[in-house]
Design a protein around this nucleic acid. Sequence first.
DNA 1: GTCTATAGCCAGATAGAC
DNA 2: GTCTATCTGGCTATAGAC
Lengths: 202, 202
Amino acid sequence: MTDTKATRDRLIDTTRALLWERGYAATSPRAVLAGAGVGQGSMYHHFTGKEQLALAAFERNADAVLTKAEAVLHGPGGPRERIVAYLELQRDVLKGCPVGRMAGDADVLATASLCEMLDTAFQRVRALMVEVIDEAQTSGDIAPGTPAADLAETVLAVVQGGYVLARAAGSADPFERAVRGAVALLPRPVATPRKSKKGKRS
Amino acid sequence: MTDTKATRDRLIDTTRALLWERGYAATSPRAVLAGAGVGQGSMYHHFTGKEQLALAAFERNADAVLTKAEAVLHGPGGPRERIVAYLELQRDVLKGCPVGRMAGDADVLATASLCEMLDTAFQRVRALMVEVIDEAQTSGDIAPGTPAADLAETVLAVVQGGYVLARAAGSADPFERAVRGAVALLPRPVATPRKSKKGKRS
DNA sequence: GTCTATAGCCAGATAGAC
DNA sequence: GTCTATCTGGCTATAGAC
C-alpha cells in the first residue's frame, strides 16, 4: 500500500527512542528528522509540531510499559509472587523508565497534554498494583492492616527511585539493591502456603 | 568589606534556586544574571562558565540536603525512629529533591564534574543510611537477615521515587502514600522496646 | 569588577518548489 | 507528501568600554 503510514510511523518510532534516551526538552525535531531520514517539512505535514509528535510517541511508550506491567501483574503465580516479579522485571536500568523519565523534564510539566498523559499512565499502573496487593492481603499472601494504596505506592516508588539512584551512580547496582531490599521487606505473614514445588527457597 | 563576595554569592544563590526548580539544562546564564541582578560579564569574571557556576551551586545544595539528613539520622531516638524520621522529613515534595533532580537531567549526565558531584552526594547519604540500619539490626530494632545495604537503598529509593510519582501526579499524595507504606513495612521484630514514654503510639 | 554589545550556534516553525 | 531554504529567537560565550 502507500508508504504514507510508513513515514508517520518512522517519525513516531524515532521520537519514542529519543524521548526515552534524552527526554522531551532535549529531543529536537531536527534530531527526529535526521533519525527517521526525512526532511523538515514532512514532520509538519503529519503533526502540528513537536508537542503533538511527542504526545503520540509518549502514548506508545506508555502503552508498552503498561502492557509489560500487566503481563506480570495479571500473570501466573500467587499475588505476592507477581509483585516480586514486577519488581524484578525492570530492564535497561540506566536508560530509566520511559514514563517516569518524563516526570523529571521541566518542559513536560509545562505542557498540559503531556502532563495528563503522564498522570494517566501512572494511575493505570497504580490501579493494577493496588488490585494485586488487595488480592494478596485478602488471600493472606501479604499481611493486611496497611492500606493497599500505601503499599502499592511504595512498590512503584522503589522502582522509580531505583532508576534515579542508578543513573546518579552510573551503575545498575543501586536499582538491584533497592529491589532486593523491597522484596525482603514484603511481609510474608505465616509460612509459604505452597510446599509442593521442589526446593524453591532462596 | 568589599562586596566582591556578595556578587559571587548572589550568583551562586540564584543558581541554586534555579537548579532546584528547573534543573541544569533549563537553567541559562541569562536567567541567573537576571535573577541576581548583574550584567553578563560579571559571571564570567567569577566563573569560567555555566558548568563551574552550576558545580559551585550544586555543591551547596548537596551540602544542605546532607546536613538535614545527618541531623535526623544522627539525631535523637532509636535507630528505627531515626529512619522513620528521615522518611517523614521531606518537604517541598513537588519541587523535588535538589540532588535527585539532577540525575534526570541529560546535560548533567554528559558533564563529568556534575556526575561526580551527584554520585558523591548519594554515596554520602547512602553511607549514613547503611550505618543507621546496621545499628538498628544490631540493637534488634530492625530484624536482621537482610543486608543493610539493600534496605538502605530501598529507603532512599522510596524517597526518590516518591518525588517522581508526586511530580507526575501534580500532587504530594503519592509521596506521602509511599512513605506511609515504607514505614509500615519496616520490620519491628518483637515488641517496641521502650514503654516508658507517654502514649507515643500513633 | 562590572557593564553593554555582539558573536556563532541551534532550537522550533514556516514558505514554497517539486 | 516530501523536500530545501529560511525566519525568529534563545542559548553560551567573548570583546572591549568604563
